[in-house]
Design a protein around this nucleic acid. Structure first.
Length: 305
DNA sequence: GTCCGAGATTTCCTTGTGGG
DNA sequence: CCCACAAGGAAATCTCGGAC
């Protein structure tokens, strides 16, 4: 064998980043090391893996073919490393967990802490994103699992629901609805609405209005959940959310009131999204840990339902 | 046409490791 | 201990696209 695993790892990094510089940063070596490794790998395999372009490197058809074989090979190699740990009664290695961006600050600390206590030799890498980003990360093998919502799950991935979260209306403490025990969506008609403008998520929130025959008065759009909460807390508008952080205040300290919705709306399930196959020991262990922590009666970081 | 910046590659050097 | 080799970093150089 005239190539090395290190060359293969650098090859995958370049394929994923699209540039030598990006790959170098990713694997923590200098660009020349990557460049040399790719050249050596191409020589060893006697195949052109990349087309060099001014903006970076683009995979050739042969390179794409080699990439899928390389990923499978590295996956098996990592599996062997996991197995060596298992033989000694412990898991070791690296697992990458994705999280829907609004859930991350609430659920990840407890998951990471408990998993680290149980499997100290395993390192967890985290990657947050919107639903479509997480789906892409899973398909490309960048993450092993994702904790997210049951929204637009494609056929090639597998979602396991763990808890159902009913949507609630968020208003500021002085809002006329703040003291209500529940609210009808129709009562939001005319109120300025702050929209969490993430792909797929925005469709979910707008569909709540659509089902109630109300058109929302969208005043502002933002891709950051904490910005939504700050706008609401400062009385700039109202919003709808499904996460209810234990801390019911925005980052500036102003309180947010969550009011249940009286309309019959389906709960939004939170759960684990994964590939249907290609499941490592580490991913299984992490999934098991998440299943134990996220239950219908307890979601880390959130007030009990 | 010239300049500038981004990115890749080459050259040379240092460091670490394994074999004799 | 010495030597050979591999890996990786720093600096220099090359290539190309975009701006003026």
């Amino acid at each position: 064998m005239r190539y090395t695993f290190k060359q293969l790892e650098y090859f995958v990094a370049v394929a994923e980043c699209g540039t030598i510089a990006g790959a170098a940063e990713k694997v923590h070596v200098s660009p020349p090391s990557i460049s040399v490794a790719i050249a050596q790998l191409e020589e060893a395999l006697e195949v052109r893996l990349f087309v060099r372009q001014p903006s970076g490197l683009q995979l050739t058809d042969a390179g794409s073919e080699v990439l899928s074989h390389t990923r499978a090979l590295l996956e098996k190699a990592h599996g062997l490393q996991d197995f060596s740990g298992l033989a000694k009664g412990e898991l070791r290695g690296k697992v990458t967990l994705g999280s829907f961006i609004t859930l991350a600050p609430l659920v990840l600390p407890e998951i990471c802490q408990s998993f680290a206590e149980r499997h100290p030799a395993v390192s967890i890498e985290l990657l947050e994103g919107s639903q479509d980003q997480l789906i892409g990360y899973l398909r490309r093998g960048i993450i092993d699992l994702a904790i997210t919502y049951e929204m637009h799950i494609p056929q090639d991935l597998w979602f396991e629901p763990l808890a159902g979260l009913p949507p609630v209306v968020m208003v500021d403490a002085n809002h006329r609805l703040a003291t209500m025990s529940s609210v009808d969506i129709k009562e939001l008609e005319g109120d300025p609405y702050i929209l969490l403008d993430l792909p797929i998520s925005r469709d979910y929130f707008l569909s709540i209005f659509e089902k109630s025959g109300v058109s929302p008065n969208v005043r502002m759009k933002t891709t950051h959940f904490e910005v939504v909460r700050s706008m609401v807390a400062n009385g700039i508008g109202v919003s709808i959310g499904v996460v209810r952080p234990v801390n019911n205040a925005a980052l500036d300290g102003k309180p947010i009131v969550s009011v249940p919705i009286s309309n019959p709306l389906p709960v939004l399930n939170i759960g684990v999204l994964s590939r249907r196959s290609d499941f490592s020991q580490l991913a299984s262990a992490l999934k098991k840990q998440i299943q134990q922590l996220v239950t219908p009666s307890h979601v880390p970081g959130m007030t009990p339902l």
